[in-house]
Structures are given as structure tokens and as C-alpha cells.
């Protein structure tokens, strides 16, 4: 079954003809060529494909493209300002060395922004709990947790690090 899907991606209305079974991650990457959203596991575990759907973090490999019809999607490409100024969460990942190889980073940044939005004043423990659905094989998470904490709760970041 082929379906016309129109949705807003990073503030711009986009359309594509997709199969019913097409995943949102496939629509973004294969049809719209927005390859910043990564697919690590394809089994809803790794979190590399996290985007925001109507402002909430979701895994784009576990929602059909047609289920995003008429809704608003923000991907990693849409986070920075048009002039290149980084989003505070992107800036925090740079500052706190929240990445190494970079594969999980788009999902980590999108989830980090969602965690900070929902949990102002978050503790380190809460940030770690909220990161359960995002897997990083390089960093050991310390820099990622510090980056998210530095946005959600600047006072909680240990100043003696790095």
C-alpha cells in the first residue's frame, strides 16, 4: 500500500510517497536524505535514531512514517540555528567531550535535549536513568551525562572534571 505522507520536518513542510511499512527513520534517511538520524540496532534498543515528534523524543525506527503524517518532526539537522549557532545541548556535548566516534551522538543529543526539557534541576542519577534507551560504545557515558546535566542542572556538574 502506497501512501502520500506530508509532515513538517525541521520547520519545513515535506512530502513523500511511502509504503505503509516504511519507518519514520527510513523516510528521513532514504526519502528526505536527512542522514543525521542514525539507525544502530533497528530493534528499539540503541537510541541512535531518536528524533522529536511534536516536541517529544521518540525512536524513529519504531514508528511508521505514516504515523507522523501531519505532525512535526525535529531531527539533529534542525537543532542548530540557521546561522550555525549550536543548540545548547550540542554546545554542551562539545564542551564536555560527550562523544567519541559520533555514531550515537545524534540520538544522544536529541534525547539529552528532551531530558533537560522535562527535568530541570535533574540529578545525575535521574539523567542516567533517563538515558537507559541510548547506548554508547565509546565514551563510558561520563561526558554525555555531564553534558546533559550541564544544561538541565548546571550546579550539579562537578567542576574538577576534564
Amino acid at each position: 500500500m502506497t501512501i502520500d505522507v506530508t509532515l513538517k520536518v525541521n520547520g519545513v513542510e515535506r512530502s513523500a510517497k511511502v509504503e505503509a511499512r516504511t519507518l519514520l527513520a527510513e523516510l528521513l534517511r532514504d526519502h528526505l536524505k536527512l542522514t543525521g538520524t542514525h539507525v544502530g540496532c533497528d530493534t528499539t534498543q540503541c537510541g541512535c535514531c531518536v528524533v522529536h515528534l511534536d516536541g517529544k523524543a521518540i525512536k524513529s525506527c519504531t514508528i511508521l512514517a505514516v504515523q507522523a503524517k501531519g505532525r512535526s518532526v525535529t531531527t539533529i539537522e534542525g537543532l542548530a540555528q540557521p546561522d550555525g549557532t549550536l543548540h545548547p545541548m550540542q554546545e554542551a556535548f562539545r564542551e564536555h567531550h560527550g562523544l567519541q566516534c559520533g555514531f550515537c551522538t545524534p540520538g544522544m543529543v536529541m534525547m539529552g535535549a528532551d531530558i533537560a526539557r522535562r527535568n530541570p534541576g535533574a540529578t545525575e542519577e535521574l539523567v542516567r536513568h533517563e538515558l537507559e534507551g541510548n547506548i554508547c560504545r565509546c565514551t563510558g557515558y561520563q561526558g554525555i551525562v555531564e553534558a546533559i546535566l550541564s544544561v538541565a542542572n548546571p550546579d550539579a556538574v562537578r567542576k574538577d572534571h576534564h
Binding site: 528499539t44 537510541g47 531518536v50 515528534l53 517529544k56 523524543a57 521518540i58 525512536k59 519504531t62 514508528i63 534525547m111 528532551d114 531530558i115 522535562r118 533517563e130 538515558l131 537507559e132 534507551g133 541510548n134
Partner: peptide, 9 residues
């Protein structure tokens, strides 16, 4: 349940 992305769906 699950993780935040799962809890959003």
C-alpha cells in the same frame, strides 16, 4: 517502563 522514547509512544 522501557526508556523515555518508549514511554512517549
Amino acid at each position: 517502563i522501557g526508556d523515555p522514547a518508549v514511554r512517549h509512544r
